[in-house]
Design a protein around this nucleic acid. Structure first.
Lengths: 224, 224
DNA sequence: GTCTATATGGAGATAGAC
DNA sequence: GTCTATCTCCATATAGAC
């Protein structure tokens, strides 16, 4: 029967599931075969490089999901708070409030980082850039925005991890409930949400504090 | 030569190192033998239950370290801020600002949680209790203290993970730099640091807000 | 308490039929 | 594109000498 049992999309989904449940070393070819319904030999047809190629493909797949579900909303044209809520909703669903592990983070924690570190760093760096941009659009100075973006990523990852360790999803939901508020504290309500790159005011009147995305750069205003 | 090559303490340290570097599945008996300098058969002499018994012993060992280096300082008699700094210093050193993975968290992320989940939950729950008590001693109401304790644990774990994923220890140090301030915001400076359980003022004068550790319980005062 | 030697199973991976 | 059969190697684990 020379017909594919699973689409590549479905196959990658099952692979992601297996790797994130058992980790790289724990995801044996037999387990992967069981989870995908394919024979071990068939898996080598799709991924001649074996497990390493599978994990790399799965990380790409995760990057694509991230792009669609997290980065695109963060770059959107809706109000910054709404973008953050969309991100948290997507992440909360995808990781089931900590019940499922974040594979890139899982791979980063052990020696697999040596192999997949570049892809992992790209992914998290991109996330932080997206968050930074969102906060800039909300009217925060870039250096403050960046600091808060990192803090936000830290809290999301920490909440996912601790929720899983304590087997209590409320740790994630509690974090998600006040993250937008914390991240946006002090943001200018007249910031350029709707037309990023096209200032609502053709030329800033004069000393308008925190109006554009490239203003206030280089300075080190006190936060908090 | 019927003499031990390593003390049990040293042995457990090497085991911790191996498990946290490679994860449970990735830490093969051969690797463990190489890291400890013992033959595989010798390891079964110390741990007849094999890897599972080793991991359980290592988690106990981690719990004992945690007790000494984290929980004891948090329960100390020094000012709350100093206790938090001591905790962050101990954790920062122990995990090398994210360069080393936190083994209990690592084991929690994959299927090993089924086996070691109880020990892992105990450990993190105890940590959060310690943090809660510290914040109560600082004068925060218990419900607020507990919420902030969880938030603090979330941020520490998230910073460790993200610092490792991005290979940038500054993510941990930045978190550590303002965690005490954030956690203690609003704490009463006249709180009972020095003699917990023995109020400095035999009976609170009158409307002193946030003075004792058991006051303000049950209420839901607005935070932030 | 450590070692060498060994048993047995499952790991990753490949060849070739259909 | 999937399968069965098979390869090799390393995994965990044990027996028994020193």
């Amino acid at each position: 029967m020379p017909k594919p049992l699973l689409s590549r999309e479905e196959l990658l989904g099952r692979l992601y599931e297996t790797f994130s449940r058992y980790g790289y070393e724990g995801a044996s070819m037999s387990r992967i075969a069981a989870f995908t319904g394919l024979g071990r030999a068939s898996l080598y047809h799709h991924f001649p490089g074996g497990k390493e190629e599978m994990a790399a493909a799965v990380l790409d797949h995760a990057g694509a999901w991230f792009e669609r579900a997290v980065f695109a909303p963060l770059e959107g044209v809706t109000p910054p708070r709404q973008r953050l809520l969309a991100m948290l909703d997507a992440i909360g669903r995808h990781y089931d409030a900590g019940n499922r592990a974040c594979l890139p983070m899982l791979l980063a924690l052990t020696e697999e980082r040596e192999t997949f570190g570049a892809a992992i760093r790209r992914l998290f760096a991109r996330w932080i850039e997206g968050l930074t941009q969102t906060l800039c659009d909300a009217g925060l100075a870039r250096d403050i925005a960046r600091r808060r973006a990192i803090e936000g990523a830290v809290r999301v990852q920490g909440a996912l991890a601790l929720a899983r360790a304590l087997d209590d999803p409320r740790i994630f939901t509690a974090m998600a409930a006040d993250l937008p508020q914390q991240m946006l504290t002090g943001a200018d309500r007249s910031a350029l949400w709707t037309a990023r790159g096209t200032p609502r005011f053709p030329s800033p009147p004069s000393g308008g504090a925190g109006s554009g995305r490239s203003s206030r750069r280089g300075g080190a205003p006190a936060e908090r």
